[in-house]
Amino acid sequence: MGRAAYIRKRLLLMVFVLFGVTIVIFGMVRILPGDPAFLILGDRATDQKAAELREQLGLNRPVLEQYWMFVSGFARGDMGQSLLYRQPVGDLVLRRVPVSLALAAYAMGLAALITLTFGILAAINKGRWPDQLIRIGFLFALTTPNFWFGILLILLLGLTLRWFPVAGFGDTAVQHIWYLFLPALTLALQLSAVLIRNLRGQIILTLRSDYVRTAHAKGLSESLVLLRHVLRNALLSTLTIFGLQFGFLVGGAIVVETVFALPGTGQLLIQSITARDYPVVQAITVISAVLVIVVNLMVDLSYSFLDPRVTYE
């Protein structure tokens, strides 16, 4: 299969998955026994409020029509009305998306830096103390709850040493970088913990291959072989793992935003859940799923550009 055919197939699959995602979210309230309006309203439910909500969400119409309203609304950017803020959900969510995206991008940048540094360091010192130290250090990062780690960073670098602010987002670009450092680091360390394991293994595997021996035999320097020949191939597999981990990054960001009081979508999601603001929960869930789908598509497609040998099956 050629690249064009593969991309067509991948896009088709993406459309199907998007369809599935909307079905899951749409079905979530409706599949449960009982009146969805009462389910959403919880303790606040009165007959009148429930009737209003049924009208607002279109729950009194046929299911197919409801689904169509839901999907077409999303496509137009109309995601309904927040029950808590009494504002369009779209405005509410989109205003907060840049903060979350900035945090995710920042965390990915830091994670790339950390992964490359320690992944290479561990691989070239395989079995020796730097390798063991990195392994144990990042095993801790992997098994540490990120909210706890974030709080420790706040306590140590924020409150005690006063190097970094402990909450908020700042006003200027420089301040953003400053304010977002600790939350991004919290996310990055956990992400790197998974990536380093993979990169280390891949580098060790690649170092054994024939073309690396040839490069050495040609008299290329150690660092040149490593950076130009080994790393480029080793990174391919790490990229896949990154794609798979992206969902965890998005989920982790929600918790970290809450810990660092960042005005992002994560904080909104947690608020909305406590307030049972279901339209907002629904919108954020769909948006984050779309983000994961798009990132994984990009990861898959980028293979062919990084490695011309890749054939699609």
Binding site: G247, F248, G251, I254, I270, Q282, V292
Partner: peptide, 14 residues
């Protein structure tokens, strides 16, 4: 396609 934690949170919200 759903971030694990977000789906879990969404289910818990209901």
């Amino acid at each position: 396609a759903f971030p694990f934690l977000i789906l879990v949170i969404a289910i818990m919200s209901i």
